[in-house]
Design a protein around this nucleic acid. Structure first.
Lengths: 229, 229
DNA sequence: TTATTTTTGTGACGTACATCACACGATTTT
DNA sequence: AAAATCGTGTGATGTACGTCACAAAAATAA
């Protein structure tokens, strides 16, 4: 759930749903370019929001767990096509809400409308920071940014550093950074040799989040934007 | 003015302004990172919306003439910092509206709130397509995308093709494509040798917009998103 | 006009990064 | 336990593209 929607209005949002959908692991709930008139609230499971590039590579943008609102950026659009792919990483369940129903609710409930607008602004800003990292700071910036986001979303503080407590492969990191597995591998190993990170089994421990942040001018950006959700 | 805001509500929006500001050519109306509690409606002149990258290069995102709403993406944010730079390309004049005033109006006028939400969604989507072109289709994609956008915004149909009726240098195009002047030059000349474009004085004539669109999978995207405004 | 500045054109070169190839260890399946 | 699959590590090589250098052309100023 977005920090910007109050509990009351979030419950209200959920009452607008007209059905629940079960999505099996690996299946797409929606795909970019597809016409659709729903958006969704995740009830259980996990979704990956991504785009495909011209040559078939997948650029991952968000990981969404329970209470995330997904597929919402096509609301109010002329042609109503999804901008992204939403794929279940685990067996999942979502609430489906019709776009037209949300519009009715927004007209009827201005307080809700303002909160909804805040939530969308929030999503936009998240996406914007991702965009900035990718375009303005290159592949390395994108990888650092991904590590920082994962730390904010899944990091647990240990005495050695911040442990990224998610099973994530180099290929996954590459998908989030629009780069190649090999490049991720090399970059991680240079970071390791600099003492910025280290490995615990397959997981990553970050010793100096500050170093990563400094490289991409990520000063003072609140953890609420700078996450992977 | 956004296509999504009705004339009536746009006039209403303008009545919320508490002052007009004159901005001299070359001056910044707002800068990224700056704290501010206003957004603006352009009355006259022209503004360029941009971001600076780590190494000081400028990435241009929008060109905004009269009736454009600018600096609004920071509304409702925690810390209220501008995400972009807004610089006057000519002597210009804008209306300034306080963020808190727009929030009041949104609560009071749900119809307006929905229209405002649509306008912001529209901006998100524009920005999103720009982002897609840059990240997913590389420098070349960004340049093609810029040409297509300029054609949609400033192109006039002639018997030879679509004339981009704006004075624009290779450096300008480079700034919109996050690439270098030299690369733009080389790419334009290969496009010319392929017969896709030609030059008329300093201006560009596009003979095959379709070719450019095909390269970046820009199928069916309505001209209302795909512009530079 | 001539002089100066701006814009464009192009070769030479370096760097970042993708791709290919393949080895090795770890994990899962049979 | 053996086999198969998956994830990681690393060199070799190619390519896109940025940077530098400088020249020519065009536009603007003097």
């Amino acid at each position: 759930m977005s920090q910007f929607i109050s509990k009351k209005n979030f419950e209200q949002l959920k009452t607008l749903a007209y059905k629940t959908i079960k999505v099996k692991k690996g299946m797409f709930l929606f795909q970019e370019g597809q016409i659709g008139e729903n958006f969704f609230v995740v009830l259980s499971g996990k979704f990956q929001i991504s785009k495909f590039s011209g040559d078939g590579k997948e650029l991952c943008l968000r990981l969404c767990g329970p209470n995330a609102v997904i597929g919402e950026l096509m609301i109010f659009s002329d042609n109503g096509r999804y901008l992204f792919n939403g794929r279940a990483l685990e067996d999942s369940e979502v609430l489906a809400i019709k776009n037209e129903d949300i519009e009715k609710e927004l007209l009827a409930n201005p307080e809700f409308a303002v909160e909804f607008l805040k939530m969308m602004t929030d999503h936009f800003r998240k996406q914007h920071t991702k965009f900035r990292d990718l375009v303005l700071y290159g592949k390395k910036g994108a990888l650092y940014s991904t590590l920082i986001r994962m730390a904010n979303s899944y990091g647990i503080q240990t005495k050695e550093g911040i442990l990224l407590d998610v099973p994530v492969t180099h290929q996954d990191l590459a998908n989030f950074s629009s780069t190649s597995r090999e490049s991720v591998n090399r970059e991680l190993n240079t970071l390791k040799s600099k003492g910025i990170i280290s490995f615990k089994g397959r997981k990553i421990i970050i010793h100096s989040l500050d170093y990563l942040k400094k490289q991409i001018n990520c000063e003072g950006c609140p953890a609420s934007y700078c996450n992977i959700e």
